[in-house]
Each structure stands twice: as structure tokens, then as C-alpha cells.
Design a protein around this nucleic acid. Structure first.
Lengths: 206, 206
DNA sequence: TTTTAATCGTGATTTTTTTCTTGATTTAGT
DNA sequence: ACTAAATCAAGAAAAAAATCACGATTAAAA
């Protein structure tokens, strides 16, 4: 991904992408920036600026080709390039993510889950096996997996993260509310469910 | 929430909050902006600016009082004010969110779940009952619930959202990848799992 | 006490992001 | 053809956010 896409932009790009998928399903071939802008409650020149970033020219009075937009969003966001990942923590959230097929169409390939609960080990979820956590280091090495999706309870988050780092995991998508301590070689992405919700709620609901 | 807290700030506030919780557990009473900044990989003056927004003064050479910071973050983000919500869609994600106890401590109170699958109806999840979706309008009215957390499959998202809106739901926290069409009286918050992940992944993993 | 180093507070600067504006283009209607 | 309306493109302007810089404060060490 040569270009450095700002967080806000990549967020909007995925929203645009969803709209493109919808338009394709409905057989609509072109879409204009005001249409999209109105749908998302943003400015239409914002939409055009974002599309320009994709090097995707529109046609005056007509708009953009839905198919082309969808393709270049996918290319820009790297959907095409599949990335393998492990889910660590086969609790409810872990299982939910394992079943979340959208990941696949967005280029994130969940290979397996890990847990320390013997009852869960060897179960299958959405064709993915749950392994005992002790098997992780070996599988990381054999499969060259760099990404872990962390869905364990908060109190174990740091200890498990340390274990993942020892096992050579390079990227942690952190769904726990803990703020992980990691060395500079490891990148953490905090999925901050409450943060984004509070922002939403605070604006209106008092 | 009188003040209009920008999205990025409220995001950082929840991260600060997690760190405060951790410090309290460890019995540490003060924390400095450089400590926090280093942990999150951001600038320390940024942290101070955010704290200033909370009207929370620090002490030179010492830092801020952890307890005070935690309290004022909670006050500012409205943790104190409990908000009731329904989860619509008792699939894996819906069940996971129903079990996610952090919601409660952040002031979001899940009252019940709804689904159209007769097999799921009347089950209990984390002390919350699953009702048939047809019961929703009545319960919205009786309990005065304004928030729905939407976790149905994408293809039903718009239809279910329309139903929620007819039932007088005012805020939709949308976990589906669909971009909902709603009237201006209804606010949608898109939880864009892939968007935030792609942003993370794009930066490094190519 | 005096010095030193860490830390705060805040105004200035820079960078990033969004919105505004204007002119060109294109389709559809006259 | 000509006109009108919608739309794109792109630069300018404005707004927002992040970073820098530095004086003031304070706790601990010399």
C-alpha cells in the first residue's frame, strides 16, 4: 500500500465500498458524488477528493462507474492481498469474528482459533479449528502468520499478548479494553468499541 | 454532554480511561503525560491538551491524580448516565455483545435481544432474554428505549432498520456492513470493523 | 540551600482535513 | 443548435488537529 491513507479516509472508503456493493446488486452502473454524500451526511466535494485519491476520474453530469470505484477501493485498501490471521480467545467475541465472513471478502483470512479451555479445543467453527493456545508458537512459525486478533478477557490480555509477541506475532488487533504494552517492533490496533459508541452517544443523548 | 468532544479525542479518552483502571488496580495514584504518551505512541502535549479539556489540572514534576482523571473522563464521556439499548439480531455477534460486560461499566445497559428465529426466542443470554422481533415495538414503547444495536446479516439490515425506525428507535449502532438509509430524525453510527482494520493493515503489511 | 531534572501549561507553528468557490463539461430538454 | 441543470475538477480558504517550544513549577538530589 504505497500511499499513506489517513484513518478517516480509509473509513470513508469502506463505507463507499458498501454502497458500491449495494448498487451492483441493484444493477446500477453509475453513481454521483452528491448521491453518496447525501447518504453519508457529508460534503460532496469530500467524496470527490477521496475518489481523486483513488485516481478514479468521474464524468460530469453522470458520475462515476460503480464497478471501477469498487475495484479501485479494493485495490487501494488492499482487499486483494490476502492476509492470514489467528483469533486468540474462543469466547463469544472470538467465535463471532470467526463466523464473520465479511473478513474474507475484505482480504483477511482467519486460519484458526486458540483458547486454553480444554472443552473448546478441537471444536470447529466455520471450518476453522480451535487449538490449544500452547500450539500457537509452532503454527505461527509453520504458517508464517503475523496477525493475531485478541479476544481474551481483559485480565489476561497483557499476559497473552506477551506470549504472542514471544511467538513472533507482529500485529495485534486488540479487541480487549486493555492498553497493551508492546515493544516497538510490534504494532497494536485497538478496536475501541466503547470509544466510538460514546462519541456517538455523547453528541445527542446527553 | 454539553461539550462537543471530537471523535479522535473521545477515542483517546477511553484509552486513557483503560490505563487509569489499570493503574488503580496496581495501586498507583499519579500518572504523568509522558508516561501515557509513550504507552500510546502519541505526543505528550497532546495528552495534556486532552486533559485540559477535562478541566483537570496536573501538578508539575508529579503528574495527574489517577482517580480524578478517571472520574472526569467518566463524567465527560457520560459513563455515569446510563443508556438503555436493545440488541437486534441474536447471532454470534449479537450474543457476544450481550456478554460484553464492559458495556455496563461504560453506561450502556443492554435490556434484551431480539431475533426472528423461533429456536432462539426465550433463551437467556447473560441474564437478558431473547424476544421475537415482533415484540420489539411494544417493548420500545413501554421501556422508552431509544438505542438499537443492529447485528443482523447484511441482507436484512435495511429492512430491519426500517422496522426499528417505525418502532420509534432513534439511534442505531450499526454493526452490519450495510450503509443504512434513514430519515434525518434517526442517527446511525457505523461500526466499521474492516475500515479500522484495513487502516492498520495498510500501513505496514502491504 | 541550591541545583537539577521532570513535568506542567500554553501560545505559536505546522500539518492535516474539510469546506467553499469557480469554471469546465456533459446530458437532457427546448 | 441552444439552453439549462447537474456534475466533476481543482485551487483557495477555513477549520481542526497535532506538534513544537519554552517559561514556570516543583520534588528530589547534591
Amino acid at each position: 500500500m504505497s500511499k499513506n491513507i489517513p484513518e478517516k479516509v480509509s473509513n470513508r472508503l469502506t463505507l463507499y465500498h458498501s454502497i458500491m456493493v449495494e448498487y451492483i446488486e441493484e444493477g446500477i452502473e453509475t453513481i454521483s458524488s452528491p448521491q453518496i454524500a447525501q447518504r453519508l451526511g457529508i460534503d460532496d466535494s469530500q467524496v470527490r477528493k477521496d475518489f481523486k485519491l483513488l485516481n478514479n476520474a468521474g464524468k460530469c453530469r453522470v458520475g462515476y462507474l460503480v464497478k471501477d470505484l469498487k475495484d479501485s477501493i479494493e485495490k487501494t485498501l488492499g482487499f486483494a492481498k490476502t492476509k492470514d490471521a489467528f483469533i486468540v480467545g474462543a469466547g463469544h467475541l472470538g467465535l463471532a469474528l470467526a463466523k464473520y465472513d465479511s473478513f474474507n471478502s475484505y482480504g483477511l483470512n482467519i486460519l484458526a482459533l486458540f483458547d486454553n479451555d480444554p472443552q473448546k479445543v478441537d471444536m470447529q467453527v466455520n471450518n476453522k479449528q480451535i487449538f490449544h493456545i500452547s500450539k500457537l508458537p509452532n503454527l505461527v512459525e509453520r504458517l508464517g502468520v503475523e496477525i493475531a486478533i485478541l479476544t481474551v478477557p481483559r485480565q489476561y490480555a497483557q499476559a497473552v499478548a506477551d506470549f504472542l509477541i514471544d511467538s513472533n506475532i507482529k500485529y495485534i488487533w486488540n479487541f480487549t479494553p486493555a492498553v497493551l504494552k508492546v515493544p516497538p517492533t510490534v504494532k497494536v490496533w485497538n478496536e475501541n468499541l466503547m470509544g466510538s459508541f460514546l462519541q456517538f452517544a455523547c453528541k445527542d443523548i446527553i
